[in-house]
Design a protein around this nucleic acid. Structure first.
Length: 326
DNA sequence: CACTTGACCTGTCCGC
DNA sequence: TGCGGACAGGTCAAGT
């Protein structure tokens, strides 16, 4: 579940690898993953060079020198993995392995027609670091062919997408304008956070925190972790959370997001960075996916999993007391 | 308008 | 062992 720290980690990785590279071709086998029928892909993508890689909320942007940008949302299970031609698989039996994989797969044979020289391999020398085998695999939806490399967009659940749009239009999209402040932006103050939460006064504080129009980039993992750290019950109505607690929540959220970025993000099931490596933040998590285990602040109390705002939610009921109206 | 629910998808896990 | 159903949760559209 890529949230801010995961998307930031991918951005940092791609920003080292992509700028200066030219796009030579693009292939996809699922239209919703690459919904660009209204755009002249030949004119504005093929032959263009990457200028920069950016992030806003959970969205990645790859700016091209054609004055267009690739806008990418990984949603739940998206991965963007870069494979340079040096990782090319030499062995001739790779074709057989891919064919075997497709025979065993329930899904129809891939429509990709990359030559074997375009196939890449992961995991060599780093057992356990990678979730990725040879690419493309059966979750590969889009392949960007670059000079000297391939960028694979894998997405098991097909929720993610890559759109090609004029760079100047990106910020004008409703989709982008609605995002709230970046939580790590230095000019986003505790006071501003406290006030912006008033817009979701009557919903739960967790629903407010994962609302992208309130603050950008927070999803289920970092909502649960920051609410535990700030000792706020996720189901508390926002208007019952006082200003002191709101400021504490932003403070804890920032600490957690920074730590997670330092650890390369959270790998729960699918997430990997631009080089196919897992993130290690969940080793430092205090509640997320820790239901049934002792709370580190109250070892006699076990972490519970409840449902708040329609999401699985992890709490310590001793740390996080639910406040009621009178 | 504020807020909640269902749909979009596939892989995994659990109970029968 | 197989099979149906619940579950995972980011976002938008539709519903209350």
């Amino acid at each position: 579940m890529p949230e801010l720290p995961e998307v930031e980690t991918v951005k940092v990785g791609l920003a080292k690898l992509l700028p200066g590279r030219m796009v030579l071709g693009v292939e996809h086998d699922w239209d919703k993953s690459f919904p660009n029928t209204e755009v002249d892909v030949q004119a504005f993508l093929i032959g263009a060079k990457v200028i920069a890689v950016r992030r806003r909320a959970k969205v990645l942007m790859i700016d091209l020198d054609s004055s267009y940008s690739l806008i990418i949302h990984l949603k739940m299970t998206g991965q963007l993995v870069y494979v340079d031609d040096k990782s090319k698989v030499q062995s001739s039996n790779i074709k057989d392995q891919i064919n075997l994989k497709h025979q065993n797969s329930k899904t129809p044979t891939s429509t990709f027609h990359l030559s074997s020289s375009k196939l890449g391999r992961f995991g060599g020398g780093h057992p356990g670091d990678s979730l990725i085998g040879e690419l493309p695999d059966r979750s590969t939806r889009v392949v960007l062919e670059l000079d000297g490399a391939n960028l694979f967009f894998n997405d098991q659940r097909k929720f993610g997408w890559i759109k090609l749009l004029p760079t100047s239009e990106v910020k004008q999209l409703d989709f982008f304008r609605k995002f709230g402040p970046e939580p790590l932006s230095p000019d986003f103050t505790g006071e501003a956070f406290a006030r912006i939460l008033d817009r979701r006064a009557r919903s739960s504080i967790k629903a407010a925190l994962i609302d992208q129009t309130v603050v950008a980039g927070v999803g289920n993992i970092y909502a649960d972790e920051s609410l535990w750290a700030a000792r706020i019950h996720p189901a508390t109505k926002t208007y019952l959370v006082d200003d002191i607690s709101r400021r504490r929540l932003l403070h804890e959220l920032r600490k957690i997001l920074r730590l997670s970025i330092e650890k390369g993000g959270s790998t729960d099931r699918n997430y990997v960075d631009a080089e196919g490596k897992k993130g290690s933040y969940l080793h430092f998590a205090n509640v997320f996916r820790r239901d049934g285990r002792p709370c580190v602040r109250h070892p006699g109390t076990r972490i519970e999993k409840i449902r708040v705002a329609g999401r699985g939610t992890h709490i310590c009921h001793r740390c996080q007391k639910l406040l009621f109206d009178i």
